[in-house]
Amino acid sequence: MFDILYKIFGRDNSSSKNIARERLRLVLIHDRATISPEVLLLLKEDLIKVIREYLEIDEEALLVNLENDNDSVALVANIPIKGLRRAVNE
């Protein structure tokens, strides 16, 4: 019953308006940071290359995203570590 009312009153998250709003949010984050999803992917690959020299990371699970926090946009990376490499002193 409430579900129907919610649909009628536009509270449904899958309404096309909400889809539009979320898509717009995302596209503007990228526009404002002048970085496209492709460039972000390149950045991610480079990040992996650098970090791999020091740490064993879960490359599949690595996430790099632009996130909007109030007025500022941050580059947020979540990099799961599998294990620290044993230091090799020569």
């Binding site: 096309s16 308006k17 709003r21």
Partner: peptide, 18 residues
Amino acid sequence: MVKNGDMLDVDDIIDILS
């Protein structure tokens, strides 16, 4: 359309564009 949830409403737009 706004009422039916099929168009961005003014608050959404103002909020996004600040």
